[in-house]
């Protein structure tokens, strides 16, 4: 059987809210090492990779590797019924066709359980190679969200270029053009405002803003987000989930014809 107890239950809610618009149905894979998900959006342009390590759960038991197909919309509906401070426990039998979510209030005066029907989902896993990224910028997650939102009002695509001067986000459209440059700032008073840039070589790639904007729905999960780029490769947008794992998004670049 599978059983996992998460004291920070709202973390699961944040994860599902971050990916449900990108991916409709997905397989959650459980093993003794943790709870993971890998799924592409319908157009196979972007990929979501979630990893929650078993040691991040208060209790984690997985006797046999299993894949649980879920409608993320329905899962979000169920998780919406959990209180913000509730402890969430997931349970599933090895050969069952449902997963149960139990919500316990912190004062232990309210317990509820919701059963979600599992679905059979055909999914192909992609191998994500270890990559020596040319540039990685780590910036406040709220700043990334703002850049994507602001540029979306100007154009549909963004050119992200990393040079020794900083990381520039450029967009253009009918309205005109926009450039936003973030520079390294590791001495900001507040840690949550710090920006760090690790540049091995200059790199510039073009991406669809629609997807980058969608990734920003993960903002509540982490104070910072890292964008890692290498020439002619998908960008990796990485939200670290403290003490547990990560939620990563990959987006294929636009390619010059």
């Amino acid at each position: 059987m599978f059983e996992a107890r998460l004291v920070q239950g709202n973390l699961l809610k944040k994860v599902v809210d971050a990916v449900k618009d990108l991916v409709t149905d997905a397989n959650f894979d459980c093993s003794s090492s943790g709870f993971t998900l890998q799924a592409m959006d319908n157009s196979h342009v972007s990929l979501v990779s979630l990893s929650l390590r078993s040691d991040g759960f208060e209790h984690f038991r997985c006797d046999r590797n299993m894949s649980m197909g879920m409608s993320l919309g329905n899962l979000a509906k169920i998780l919406k019924c959990a209180g913000n401070d509730d402890i969430v426990t997931m349970k599933a039998a090895d050969d069952g066709d449902t997963v149960t979510f139990m919500f316990e209030s912190p004062k232990e005066d309210r317990v509820s359980d919701f059963e979600l029907k599992l679905m059979d989902i055909d999914s192909e896993h992609l191998g994500i190679p270890d990559t020596d990224y040319a540039a990685t910028v780590t910036l406040p997650a709220a700043e990334y969200q703002r850049i994507c939102r602001d540029l979306s009002s100007i154009g549909d695509t963004v050119v992200i270029s990393a040079t020794k001067d900083g990381v520039k986000f450029s967009s253009s459209g009918d309205v005109g053009t926009a450039n936003i440059t973030v520079r390294q700032n590791t001495t900001a008073d507040k840690k949550e405002e710090q920006v760090s840039i690790d540049l091995k070589e200059p790199v510039a790639l073009t991406f669809a803003l629609r997807y980058l904007n969608s990734f920003a729905k993960a903002t509540p999960l982490a104070s910072h987000v890292s964008l890692s780029m290498a020439r002619d490769l998908p960008v990796m947008v990485d939200y670290q989930i403290s003490d547990m794992g990560h939620l990563r998004f990959y987006l294929a670049p636009k390619i010059e014809d």
């Binding site: 196979h44 342009v45 990929l47 896993h125 992609l126 490769l233 294929a252 014809d257």
Partner: peptide, 14 residues
Amino acid sequence: KASQGRLESFFGPV
């Protein structure tokens, strides 16, 4: 004009 790449062009099957 740039065209949108697909992930399978970059990441292979496991």
